[in-house]
Design a protein around this nucleic acid. Sequence first.
DNA 1: ACCTTGACTAGAT
DNA 2: AATCTAGCCAAGG
Length: 109
Amino acid sequence: MRFARTSLPKSMNNQQRIWQVVSQIPAGYVASYGQVAAQAGLPKAARLVGNVLRQLPDDSKLPWHRVVNAQRKISFPQLSDAYQHQKQRLLAEGISFNGEVIAKQHCYW
DNA sequence: ACCTTGACTAGAT
DNA sequence: AATCTAGCCAAGG
């Protein structure tokens, strides 16, 4: 058919799948960008997860703060407001740190 | 269409 | 343990 689309199974875009996965992380737990990507079916798109979270509006209900890097650290410069903001939210959920690093017991996957 | 830039990462030094 | 490097995906210039 002349009007066939180039894309077919693209019912849900990657952004939505990532939102979906992030929304599943329970309070008191964290997951890495890479793990979220993998759960969303995009095993090599860790960076994309960060890009997507960056776009979230300030009033978003998504628990974006539960996503940290593979070393279990917050992926913001330690001096930035963003770092403090995320850390406060994590502490508020009972997450414990060993210095910069989040305790292993809080890993979801 | 090409190049650069990231809330990234696994692997090599 | 601290750095570097090479892949990766999508967006923007």
